[in-house]
């Protein structure tokens, strides 16, 4: 048996034993690469995800809502920071990760390529998008890579607050005037299917799932998580008194789950490939912020170098 295979066996044994893998531990190159891809994709999603919600900060309908939304979007920037730091433990810099995002090499969650067209979309995103994210992230708090799992614990706490805040926006709209309820229904109509798409392709079309489950990066498959989301969300929509836009949605007594209709996979792949309604403008907003900020970052580095040199001179 080659030394490499021995190491891999020992690595798998640790994972099977539910031990966490830490940055300085030996790990297969593919495990490291998979994690860089997944954690950075998650970090990019937080940062790009600031944009559709940021779109309503200046137009929020009350001071209380404005503060809530602003704080939420700020939390997402904070999540981005922890996640970039977690990815950096695997030997890649934040600048390299940004570069992958800006050149289109790295992906982020497709949901953020949909536009926010009304205030109700802010409620729908909190309720559905954060709701779907939590299902995925609760699973990830038990993922095998230590820094990622720990970042997730903290993020999950804040996300569940966001989700409740979003649902509360929806509830206020649904208990309000008819045009407010119509706004809520319209937001659900537009965000329902993209939310289901957040769990990724069907298991049968998801080549990475098997290895990810073996390494305990994932503990449930895309289809299992999607089903869990539907089962949780249907009663919530009923309580709001709005209708999920799926004629095939019905309770299946035998399975103990809701059956639901087929996702438009053509749309899913089109958005993944960059042809969604807002892909170009989202990426452009990130690239612009980065490029327009270059002189600021250079100034900060130059200034701190000057200060350090002065200190060295003084102590010399």
């Amino acid at each position: 048996m080659s030394p490499e295979i021995k190491l891999e066996d020992a690595f798998q044994a640790r994972i099977d034993d539910e031990q966490k893998i830490e940055p300085k531990d030996w790990m297969p190159e593919k495990y490291r690469k998979t994690h860089i891809r997944q954690i950075s994709q998650h970090a990019h999603s937080e940062i790009v995800g600031m944009l559709p919600e940021g779109n309503w900060i200046t137009r929020a309908p009350s001071l209380k809502r404005k503060l809530g939304l602003l704080a939420k979007v700020q939390d997402e920037a904070g999540h981005g920071l922890y996640l970039y730091s977690a990815a950096e433990t695997l030997g890649i810099s934040r600048d390299e990760l940004f570069d992958q995002l800006h050149t289109g090499k790295a992906k982020y969650s497709s949901i953020f390529n949909y536009p926010t067209l009304s205030w109700a979309d802010i409620g729908a995103i909190g309720w559905l998008v954060d709701g779907a994210a939590i299902i995925n992230q609760v699973m990830l708090t038990r993922t095998s890579y230590g820094p990622y799992a720990r970042a997730m614990v903290r993020i999950c706490k804040e996300e569940s607050f966001h989700q409740r805040q979003g649902y509360e926006i929806m509830l206020t709209l649904c208990q309000g005037m008819p045009e407010q309820k119509a706004m809520a229904q319209d937001a659900l109509n537009r965000f329902w299917w993209p939310s289901l798409m957040m769990f990724g392709p069907r298991d049968s079309d998801s080549p990475n799932t098997e290895q990810s489950v073996k390494w305990k990066i994932k503990r449930k498959t895309n289809d299992e998580l999607r089903q869990q989301f539907v089962d949780i969300t249907v009663p919530q929509a009923e309580y709001l008194g709005i209708t999920i836009p799926d004629p095939d949605l019905k309770w299946n007594e035998d399975r103990g789950h809701y059956d639901f209709g087929e996702i438009d996979w053509e749309e899913f792949w089109q958005v993944v490939k960059g042809n969604g309604p807002c892909n170009k403008e989202r990426l452009k907003a990130r690239v612009d912020a980065w490029e327009e900020g270059a002189w600021v970052r250079e100034a900060a580095v130059a200034y701190s170098t000057k200060i350090k040199n002065n200190e060295v001179k003084r102590t010399a």
């Binding site: 940062i47 600031m50 944009l51 940021g54 900060i57 602003l70 979007v73 700020q74 920037a77 904070g78 981005g80 920071l81 970039y84 907003a285 612009d288 912020a289 980065w290 327009e292 900020g293 270059a294 600021v296 970052r297």
Partner: peptide, 11 residues
């Protein structure tokens, strides 16, 4: 918000 030169200044 969301357009700062670094994440830290944005926050």
């Amino acid at each position: 918000c969301g357009h700062g030169p670094t994440l830290e200044t944005d926050i």
